[in-house]
Structures are given as C-alpha cells and as structure tokens.
Amino acid sequence: MSVQVLTLPGWQSSGPCHWQTLWEQRYGDRRVEQHDWMRPLRGDWLARLDEVLLGLPADQPVVLAAHSLGCIQVAAWADHSRLTARVRGALLVAPGDVEREDLRVLLPGWAPIVRRRLPFPSVLLGSRNDPFCSEERARTMAEDWGSTYHDMGAGGHLNAESGLGDWPVARALLEELKKD
C-alpha cells in the first residue's frame, strides 16, 4: 500500500503558493484540515490528526509534512497519541517558537513545547533568519525531538514568501522518509 503524506499547516493554514499546497496538488498529499485556522486550539488540532489517521486504512503508512505550528502539533500529538506507530516519519519545517512571548500571546495554550524524542524518524529544516524561530532554537528542537537538522540558509519562514515553489529539495527529503 502506498504511503499517504499528510500535510500539517501552521497558524492560518497554507495559501495557494505554499509548498504544502503545491505538493497536495502535484502529489496527492492530503491536508489535515482544522476547524479553526485563526484561533488554533491545541487539543482540537491534536484530536483532528487522530481523526484523520483513524479514517485511513489501518495498514496504510503515513508520513507527516509539517510547517510552523504544525511542527509543534506533531511533537505534542506524538507525546500522547496511541496512533504514532502508523507514522513512518515526519518532515518538520520552520517550527514556530510558541514559547517566545510575542507568539505565546498570539497562540495561547501551545506553550510549553513538548521536548521528548519523537517515536519515528524525523528531519527538521530550519532557516538562519526565520522571524518566528531563531536558528539556535530550531536546532535545539531538532536535538530534543531526535530529528536530523538541515540548514536551509537565509530562507525566512520557509513558506510561500520564501519563493520555494514546490521545493524539490524538501520533497527529496520527504521521499527518503517514505522508504521502509
């Protein structure tokens, strides 16, 4: 059975030119839609990921492709879900540092960031000039989660504004996670 890629956008979702949206269109990846993208509630977002996984065939392997708050969602979800064995790996891109005061105010209930090792392989792509997370914090999250860190240079928040298009470099890393 083929691997299902689930995209996990961050706060406010991902627009039409975002790499996640382009991957959904090009490769058939499936977005985990949230009930409220503007006022994200941590518990709701975690439950929604469980719901989507339970709606897939029980033997279908999954790879998560998370951006920003979606990365924080993956760490929190993996800490409590009973469905983590369904996940073959996770691509974590530009995690938002919700412990920073300016983001903590905008996204209440998301701090503290779960810092336990993920129970599946993961790759974290960070930027040297991400306005929502310092490179140092992104590297620390990668270490805490047991993720391989990839320095994407000065790429901003690694989103549509970064001009990545459908981002073949990141897709190649995701394809590696899909393999047995």
Rank of each mutant, 00 (worst) to 15 (best):
A90T: 12
S2V: 05
R171P: 02
E51D: 15
R100G: 02
L164I: 12
D102N: 03
Q4V: 14
L106N: 01
A65G: 03
G15T: 13
R42Q: 13
G146W: 11
T84E: 09
V74C: 02
L177R: 08
H150E: 12
L164R: 11
L56I: 02
V169E: 11
N129P: 00
D166Q: 14
L177E: 06
V62Y: 00
D130L: 02
G146Y: 08
V5W: 04
P61Y: 00
D29R: 00
D44F: 11
A90M: 11
Q34V: 08
G89Q: 10
D97H: 08
P95Y: 10
E99V: 01
S162R: 04
W37E: 10
S134I: 04
D59E: 05
Q4L: 11
L177N: 05
L8R: 11
F132E: 04
L173E: 10
S122R: 14
V93L: 03
P16S: 11
L83M: 12
S134E: 06
L69G: 02
F132N: 06
P57Q: 00
N129M: 02
R116Q: 15
L49C: 07
G10P: 12
L125K: 07
L69T: 03
V3H: 03
A65E: 01
R39F: 04
A65Q: 02
S13T: 13
G156H: 07
S2E: 04
L106R: 14
R48T: 15
H80T: 15
G156Y: 08
A154Q: 13
D29M: 02
P168L: 13
D50A: 08
H35Y: 01
S2H: 03
P131G: 05
V98A: 07
D50L: 09
P131T: 07
L54G: 08
L64S: 07
S162N: 05
H157I: 05
H157E: 05
L64C: 08
P95V: 03
G155Y: 04
L22V: 12
L124R: 06
M1E: 08
Q34N: 04
F132K: 00
W19E: 10
L124C: 06
F132M: 03
D29L: 02
V87L: 13
D59K: 00
G96S: 11
D180V: 12
A142S: 08
W145S: 14
G15Y: 13
P61V: 01
V5N: 00
T148H: 12
E101Y: 00
A75I: 11
M152C: 15
H18G: 05
R82T: 14
L164E: 07
D59S: 01
T84G: 05
A65Y: 00
G43M: 13
K179A: 12
L46F: 06
I72N: 05
G70E: 01
S14F: 07
R139G: 07
